[in-house]
């Protein structure tokens, strides 16, 4: 039922801005607040409703880094690739997590919408290198194995919660 509510909100947002193409940025902002990201379908819907081309909407959405075009999972994992972590092989952790979660260079979020894996430039916790952040919580001094174990633990507790 959440999807219906989301969609009705989009209709309301479009009505609130009177389907005025000049309000595109405000509309995208409001729509993103609703869906947490801007999907192709929703951007196409917005473009058609405003009578402008989807390429224009996409141009605006990619110009501002505030807009997210990829869905974000329930758990956002950020792997530090600052100098200190990089030297301590943070990329190996990234690869291990991607492999474990079946992610690719283009897909950062798992199909079940549980995990999003990304790199960030420096977390400012170089003393703990290599480090990752899972939903704001820092985990340091990791190896690929311990990092994957963290994810496995979350997967286990999610599975339990669903039973």
């Amino acid at each position: 039922m959440e999807k219906i509510r989301n969609f009705e909100q989009v209709c309301n947002i479009l009505a609130r801005y009177e389907r005025n193409p000049n309000s595109l940025i405000s509309i995208l902002q409001a729509v993103q607040a609703e869906y947490r990201y801007l999907s192709e379908e929703v951007m196409t819907f917005v473009a058609s409703s405003l009578g402008i081309s989807p390429a224009k909407v996409f141009g605006v959405a990619t110009f501002y880094s505030h807009f997210t075009l990829q869905p974000k999972g329930k758990y956002e994992i950020k792997i530090c690739d600052g100098t200190a972590c990089h030297v301590k092989k943070s990329i190996d952790i990234l690869d291990a997590l991607k492999q474990h979660l079946h992610l690719t260079d283009k897909e950062h979020t798992t199909k079940d919408m549980l995990f999003t894996v990304e790199t960030v430039s420096c977390l400012g916790t170089c003393g703990l290198a290599p480090a990752i952040v899972i939903n704001e919580e820092v985990h340091g001094l990791l190896t690929p194995e311990t990092a994957v174990q963290l994810v496995k633990d979350i997967q286990k507790s999610e599975a339990l919660a669903n039973e």
Binding site: M43, S53, A55, K56, V57, F58, G59, T62, F63
Partner: peptide, 19 residues
């Protein structure tokens, strides 16, 4: 028609179709 437009910015700016 508007089939192509600028997307991304800075060094990544590219003229491309939507998405």
């Amino acid at each position: 028609v508007g089939a192509i437009d600028f997307a991304y910015r800075g060094a990544n700016a590219t003229v491309m179709p939507c998405f």
